[in-house]
């Protein structure tokens, strides 16, 4: 077994490496945005599914790594429900395992080229729902804290990498949920810059004319697990269609 000093040194090396990588992502993101501006390219992921098609959608940033989502969702290709999270050998995991009722998975196409007219696209499956048969009973997250919903945690545990997760971000400022569109746009921009995560803020219009803004992400599993929480807010992340209203 390592000594305490060896464990700390190994962890610090990895932390430094992550920070270096993050700087590279931010630099690459800045260069990509500059290139997009020069080309006059506006990439807006207009996403929605099932009964949750947003009235309008806006993407302050729309890059995820060198690829970008160019918003093609094939609703006709919904796959059969995914396998439920299987029981594990260990009781706690078994309890957390979820009984999948109606997962929502769609094929989306991710452009592998900066030119939106390019034919080069990669098909990925979008995960936007993973209902679980247990109540969410989260405390209000403190500043800098980030909780994942059981559904999201179970979906990532079950599917893992290679998928795109559509994740709704609830922001909390103390005991109050953040509802301001401006605050969400600032946060969306920060998440893109710091985590390289594709983000969007959308405005939902209800039949009675009431409106609501919500921030969501299109992210890979590791981007969700490494969610760069800021010290300004607490966060609860859940799958888009498990929590969207």
């Amino acid at each position: 077994m390592k000594t305490y000093e060896e464990t700390a040194a190994s962890a610090l090396t990895r932390i430094h490496e992550h920070q270096r990588k993050k700087k590279r992502i931010v630099a690459a993101g800045g260069a990509a945005l500059a290139a997009a501006a020069v080309l006059g390219i506006v990439l807006i992921p207009r996403l929605g599914s099932g009964e949750h098609i947003p009235q309008s959608s806006e993407a302050p940033v729309s890059e995820s790594r060198p690829q970008s989502v160019t918003s093609h969702i094939d609703h006709g290709k919904q796959e059969p429900s995914a396998q439920p999270a299987e029981s594990a050998a260990e009781n706690d995991l078994a309890e957390n395992s979820s009984e999948v009722q109606n997962n929502e998975r769609y094929d989306i196409y991710i452009s592998t080229d900066r030119n939106p007219s390019s034919e080069e696209r990669e098909k990925r499956t979008l995960i936007s729902s993973y209902p679980v048969n247990r109540a969410e009973d989260w405390p209000v997250p403190g500043k800098g804290e980030c909780f994942l919903s059981y559904g999201l945690e179970s979906a990532i545990g079950d599917y893992g990498g290679g998928y795109i997760y559509q994740v709704l971000v609830e922001m909390w400022d103390g005991n109050e949920p953040v509802r301001s569109r401006d605050a969400m746009l600032v946060e969306a921009d920060r998440l893109y810059r710091e985590g390289g995560i594709t983000t969007a803020v959308e405005e939902i219009t209800y039949p009675d004319g009431g409106k609501k803004n919500q921030l969501y992400l299109l992210a890979e599993d590791q981007q969700v697990l490494d969610f760069p929480a800021s010290d300004k807010y607490g966060y609860i992340l859940s799958l888009y269609n498990d929590n969207s209203t």
Binding site: M1, K2, T7, A8, S10, A11, L12, R14, I15, H18, Q19, G142, K143, G144, E145, C146, D226, P228, A229, D231
Partner: peptide
């Protein structure tokens, strides 16, 4: 468990959450 515990400390160093 030792490897995972190290991952926890890495996450602490990366996320730098604030606690009162």
């Amino acid at each position: 468990a030792e490897d995972i515990a190290e991952d926890v400390f890495v996450k602490l160093g990366i996320k730098k959450p604030r606690f009162s």
